[in-house]
C-alpha cells in the first residue's frame, strides 16, 4: 500500500463537490412547470385583482426564476460556494432596491 499522493488527498477533499448530471426527466418537468406558470400569469392578468395583480405576477415570476436557477443552472446540485454566490447576488440587488426606495420615501413627502 503506497502513501496517498497530494493529488489523491485533494480528490478526497470534502469541499470539492461531486459533479452531478441532471437527468432530462428533471429538465422536462421544469420545462412543463415553466410553461404552466406562464399560462397562469397571463390568465391572472385578465382577472380584476386590484393591487394583487402586480403581487401575483411578481410572485409567479420569482417562482419561475427560482426554478430556472435551481435546475437549468444546476444550483440545486452545486457546491455551497456557488449557492452563496447566487444568494449574495440576489441580496445585493435587494439592497439596491431597498436603499433607493427608502431614500425616495423618506424625503419630499407627498411630492411623488
Amino acid at each position: 500500500m503506497t502513501e496517498p499522493t497530494r493529488h489523491d488527498q485533494l480528490d478526497l477533499e470534502p469541499t470539492l463537490y461531486e459533479h452531478h448530471v441532471v437527468s432530462p426527466k428533471v429538465y422536462l418537468g421544469v420545462f412543463g412547470a415553466l410553461l404552466c406558470f406562464t399560462a397562469l400569469t397571463v390568465a391572472a392578468s385578465y382577472l380584476e385583482l386590484g393591487v394583487f395583480n402586480a403581487v401575483v405576477a411578481i410572485a409567479i415570476a420569482v417562482t419561475k426564476a427560482v426554478l430556472v436557477i435551481l435546475f437549468f443552472m444546476h444550483i440545486r446540485y452545486s457546491s455551497r460556494l456557488l449557492k452563496l454566490t447566487v444568494a449574495s447576488g440576489i441580496f445585493t440587488f435587494l439592497v439596491l432596491i431597498t436603499l433607493t426606495l427608502s431614500d425616495y420615501i423618506s424625503r419630499a413627502w407627498g411630492l411623488w
Binding site: 400569469t41 397571463v42 391572472a44 392578468s45 380584476e48 386590484g50 395583480n53 402586480a54 405576477a57 409567479i60
Partner: peptide, 11 residues
C-alpha cells in the same frame, strides 16, 4: 414580461 405587459392591464 409581467412588469411591462401584465401588471397594469386592469388599472
Amino acid at each position: 414580461f409581467p412588469l411591462l405587459y401584465l401588471i397594469s392591464r386592469h388599472q
